Simulated scan of single mutants.
Amino acid sequence: MPESWATYRRSIGDRSPLFAAIAAAWPCDRALYPGSYLDLSPSAAIRSVTYVDTDRRAARFFGDRARVDAELAEAGVDAAAREVRFLHADYTDELPVDEASVDLLISLFAGPVSDHCRRYLRPGGMLLANTSHGDASLAALHPDWMLVAAVHHRDGRYRLDTSDLDRCLVPKKPADADPGLIRERGRGVAYTRSAFAYVFRLTESAGTSDRIGPG
């Protein structure tokens, strides 16, 4: 059987509850998911999602709209009410996406997505990022991003924690909290309190510059 969201979930689990929680907490009508691979889970909760990946397996899966609709239906989602768009592209290049047009930018295990795709997020929009390749750590160091929640994952369940945020993103080694070093190493900072991911809000006064971190 060709690889699909169903097969991918066996290795990463189902992230649909995570996106349901985010969509319930903040306005999320449109999302952009660079480096998505086969993860269709945002479409379980968000009306319009644009997926971006260079992998041919992702292109085959998303190119089979009947398969995509069937897997959404299996998850209890009305596929007719969802806009699923796939771009077989490198997110570090310019994408055919309007600037300031999406409510949620997703950056999970895919590199410094927000460095290149911030332009597509509207002011006041949300960034979901983890520290795997440094994106959450870069956002934590720039004043245009405001931390609004930590995402915890345990026993297949996701929880958004909006309390005690001043205790989050505290580096174990302060010297590691350097944007240039994070980009050079390609990984995030180790923090005194860990989380699966973090949600940041792009401030209303922020511009659309690609680079979010100093240096």
Rank of each mutant, 00 (worst) to 15 (best):
A6E: 12
R9D: 14
R9S: 10
S11D: 06
D14F: 07
R15D: 13
R15E: 14
S16W: 08
A21I: 11
I22Y: 00
I22C: 00
A23V: 02
A25W: 12
W26F: 08
C28V: 15
C28L: 09
C28F: 12
D29I: 02
D29F: 05
A31Q: 00
Y33W: 03
P34Q: 07
P34I: 08
G35V: 01
G35R: 00
D39Q: 09
L40P: 03
L40K: 03
S41D: 06
P42A: 12
S43T: 07
S43A: 15
A44E: 11
A44K: 00
A44W: 08
A44H: 13
I46W: 02
R47I: 13
S48H: 14
T50A: 09
Y51D: 13
V52C: 06
V52N: 01
D53I: 11
T54L: 15
A58W: 02
A58R: 01
A58M: 13
A59E: 15
A59G: 14
A59D: 11
A59V: 08
F61C: 08
F62I: 08
G63I: 10
R65M: 12
R65L: 04
R65I: 05
R67S: 10
V68Q: 07
V68L: 12
V68F: 13
D69V: 09
E71L: 11
E71H: 08
A75T: 03
G76N: 06
G76D: 05
V77K: 09
V77S: 07
V77R: 06
A81Q: 14
R82G: 03
R82H: 02
